[in-house]
Amino acid sequence: MLSTLYAVLFYFATILLVVGTGLKIRKYARTPAPLKIPTTPAPTTRSGVWLRMFREVVFFESLFKANKWIWLFGYLFHFGLLLVLLRHFRYFTQPVWFWVEIIQPFGVYASFAMVIGLAGLWARRFLVERIRYISAPSDHLMLVLLLAIGLSGMGMKFVAKTDIVAVKIFFQGLMRFQINDLPTDPLLLIHLGLVASLMIIFPISKLLHAPGLFFSPSRNQVDNPREQRHLAPWAAKLEKGGR
């Protein structure tokens, strides 16, 4: 019964995540940018823009310029999360991909980085007057959710181990549309329940910053307006309407 419930939950969450985020990305991609607005100095070539975007995604370059504390905690969190996520591939691949095996030991420690980063970000929402002012309940809850996911996961790794083989069989089964038995440890159920909620709220929350960055005109446009005329489709129609 519980296994079925979680199976349904994960199918539902996956569909919402993929379709919801896909629709948002489609909206971003289809909405024209009427003017050239890269924040300058900006790259003058497409490959330069790729490099700029790479630095933003991999190093959080702008954030580093802005505020070292937010950068530090944000970086710990995001790259901790990345390693942890990659490590989780071991529950979905059989045989486990070799690079997942390599990451595996780091992934465990990355969870500490992730949790420390999140705790730091959350502390700033209380301690820094300016950030307290701009925080809505959802901003706190999002951090709580991620923290709880991290801590419940670490709890299973370091405190009350769950039957990880059974968990893997459950998820491998889901990938083949079979429902196998899921262990019923409270920590596991909490962890999975929270992960599913995160997937569900992704496309309707500020987590859209992840795809959003790639569509941000101030970062992804080439600085070449004098050389190449840029014209949005609706603006072209406006022109036809009479010069």
Partner: peptide, 16 residues
């Protein structure tokens, strides 16, 4: 009509 407006309304995480 304006991608910047749409993306900027959605993307902010209130990082400060």
């Amino acid at each position: 009509k304006n991608r910047a407006f749409q993306v900027y309304l959605d993307a902010c995480v209130k990082c400060g």
